[in-house]
Write a protein that binds this DNA or RNA. Structure first.
Lengths: 207, 207
DNA sequence: AGTAACTTGTGAACGAATTCACAAGCGCTC
DNA sequence: GAGCGCTTGTGAATTCGTTCACAAGTTACT
């Protein structure tokens, strides 16, 4: 398959959200123009994004809402359950575990790990906190697909190395550091510090 | 000033983090190549990024670590305190308030707002939760620069409208929705759902 | 059946961001 | 002070992503 731009993938995720909204309201069809309006983009962009994966629309009519939802879910691999481990049982980890949209999309939290002795063994959102050193053993047995990394910045790279060693191929990182991983491991970083600093820049350098 | 790409701003923020690291370790100079290695980019990229704002390096030598730190901080507007209000006193808001890197960079939380009657008036991380309806009145008096939006998705747009009306020009949004705001208001969205879905896509469509 | 009103899908044109490549500057050594 | 090794700063080339523009398909109406 041709290489797909990151920006395209992110927009698909966005479109899907609107489609689900439309679906719930019982609407049958939607045009690229309507999707574009909601997503803050252009209709040509919407059509181009979709065209990488096939032709899902009907000329003159638009897209069938349930059909396009289904297709995007399929493209994005959201037709299945993903098994997620949270690594780092701190405040952010806790907030994430409670985050509803998580389970809603089929991301099921199946294990929680920490390093500190006084956390290990404690109950935590329906789970028991496990020793990070068990990750290597657990990963295959528990069929962990994705690790959510919520450890302090200074431990992030070392913990990522553990995750990689355990054979996990996808990581969502919340530590405000740039991580190094092999090419076959996907790492996405959510860096609020960076976003805040972008705002600071925007406020400082306005025309 | 020439328009600066968002990606450039984000990288500057990244470079700054490495520089501070180097600074603490007492290193005097750094090359674009070293910065690039850490940031997962190329030396040409680093130099180009910096060149939009001036020439800070010395040929043959590299960049002075403290000097470049200072320059980037200045460019990014990080030489001052930014006054931040958290809007939405839920789990995510709480996790953020505790987030250390926040204050560290000069982002000071000066007020917390919520809508629900049983939260208003309660103590919260050294603050008292205020009624969201007071935001309009407070914004100028408290000199609020940035609002962090951590309300549920379905209330996000309406709350943003309040924030805009209160005259706040920068918003960090954690609700997983696309928001509409006037052009003179900067909105950055941190959307974990989208990142997770990108991972799902990556896992599904690997070569 | 013909026409009008829409909307998709997609090459081509455009624009933006990244990478290349190299002249020019700096410090060190002999 | 000439030569060498290193590194910056930046136009030019290239790559990548977005927008344009239009042929072709669909429905609705007369």
């Amino acid at each position: 398959m041709k290489r797909i731009a990151e920006s395209t993938v992110r927009r698909l995720s966005l479109y899907l959200r609107f489609l689900e909204d439309f679906e719930q309201r019982g609407l049958e069809t939607i045009s690229s123009d309507e999707l574009a309006r909601r997503g803050g983009t252009t209709s040509a962009q919407v059509r181009k994004d979709l065209s990488f994966f096939g032709s899902f629309g009907k000329r003159g009519l638009g897209y069938s809402v349930p059909e396009l939802s289904r297709q995007i879910r399929e493209i994005m691999g959201l037709g299945r359950e993903w098994r997620v481990a949270i690594v780092g049982a701190g405040k952010i980890g806790a907030a994430l575990a409670q985050y509803h949209g998580f389970a809603q999309r089929g991301f099921q939290i199946v294990a929680v790990y920490d390093r500190s002795a006084d956390k290990i063994g404690r109950p935590w959102d329906g789970q028991t906190i496990r020793d990070i050193r068990e990750l290597d053993r657990d990963a295959a047995r528990e069929r962990i697909d994705i690790a959510v990394l919520t450890v302090p910045a200074d431990a992030a790279q070392a913990t990522l190395d553990r995750i990689v060693k355990a054979g996990i191929k996808a990581v969502l990182n919340f530590a405000p550091v740039q991580l190094q991983a092999p090419a076959d491991v996907s790492v996405k970083t959510v860096n609020m510090a960076m976003e805040l600093e972008s705002l600071s820049f925007a406020l400082t350098n306005r025309d």
